[in-house]
Design a protein around this nucleic acid. Structure first.
Length: 317
DNA sequence: CCGGACTCCTGGTTGC
DNA sequence: TGCAACCAGGAGTCCG
């Protein structure tokens, strides 16, 4: 349920605390939270301890913390006998991150920034202790009730759209999100028109447009007066453009409402708690009057989840 | 390409 | 008070 705005709030809160911070200790309380890590928890721990985070990045609902690359060790070729002193030296070429800690919050994941001695949340699955040059000792706790979320160490690869961005390999297959300055509106609209499916299914397809989940899909469709099952192939271009702009408005509004602040020591960067539910027009509002026409909002099962909409305002046409 | 079914998962809530 | 059933669904995979 954390969608783009919630994940961005987490990223923004985390960035100043983790950038430049070095991992001193990692505790894995539940290995299931490492399901997407390609190895045992010992491997996760060994590779993380001693590493320094370079930044906090996000695409769609994925968050990642690139690890500052260690200076490359350069072998000096030397003939036996000519050796004096060290046989290796540091390569002084600029180091580029090659790996990152990838975080997906799934349904219920949270990342909490805490003081080292603060009580652990009961549902903490992974604890990462760091030391930061300015902020001192901090704890990054991964808390997740349902364990659909995960952490993993992954290699960074060049994203396939040719812009040269480095993304974790687990993220390479998803599209840019609509808040990304390089999101290509024309390409998205063209792909949408070529699809032979329903509009909500398309909005939730992270390979077409990323960052949208059930809540903001329902909200954007309500704002655009589009039925969730409207075939993408019959959605007019003007209506599709309206929808994309409503997607951005809905995400932007949620982001503004969830805006966080970093108060130096211990920030709760929990993006999952907010949900900005006071401003929802459709999601979870079944039985309540449609804010536009007053008729009741309806909830239907669709794609194994709830779809909330106004049957009067949102009709297939 | 498309859609449906299935899997992962558990704490808070509801119902008896 | 106690306990079991129910519910929420993001994302990956498999199959027809």
């Amino acid at each position: 349920m954390p969608e783009l705005p919630e994940v961005e709030v987490v990223r923004a809160g985390l960035a100043p605390a983790v950038t430049g911070a070095t991992v001193t200790q990692v505790t894995v309380f539940d290995e299931r939270s490492l399901r997407r890590h390609g190895g045992p928890s010992e491997d996760f721990i060994d590779r993380l301890v001693g590493s320094t985070f370079a930044s906090a990045e996000r695409r769609g609902k994925f968050l990642w913390l690139p690890l500052r690359a260690l200076p490359k060790m350069k072998e000096i070729s030397l003939e036996s006998g000519a050796k004096r002193g060290s046989s290796v030296e540091f390569d002084d070429s600029p180091s580029i991150s090659e790996t990152a800690v990838v975080i997906h919050l799934g349904m219920s994941g949270q990342v909490l920034l805490r003081e080292p001695e603060a009580a652990l949340d009961r549902l903490t699955r992974i604890r990462i202790d760091v030391t930061h040059p300015q902020h001192g000792q901090l704890r990054v706790d991964f808390v997740d009730q349902r364990i659909f979320g995960s952490m993993a160490i992954d290699s960074l690869v060049t994203a396939p759209d040719g812009a040269g961005d480095l993304v974790p390999s687990q993220v390479a297959h998803i599209a840019r999100d609509p808040m990304d300055a390089r999101f290509d509106d024309a390409k998205f609209l063209a792909s949408l028109a070529r699809r032979n499916t329903g509009i909500k299914r398309a909005l939730l397809d992270q390979t077409l447009i990323s960052g949208i989940g059930n809540i903001y899909a329902d909200e954007a469709l309500w704002a655009s007066r589009i039925h969730y099952n409207q075939p993408t192939s019959t959605l007019s271009r003007p209506r599709a453009k309206t929808l994309l702009s409503e997607v951005r408005l809905v995400l932007g509004k949620a982001l503004a409402e969830g805006g966080t602040s970093f108060d130096a020591q211990y920030v709760n960067v929990n993006g999952a708690s907010g949900y900005f539910s006071h401003s929802l027009n459709a999601y979870g509002q079944h039985g309540e009057p449609c804010p536009r026409c007053g008729r009741p909002i309806v909830r239907e099962q669709f794609m194994n989840r709830g779809s909330h909409f106004c049957p009067w305002c949102q009709r297939v046409r």
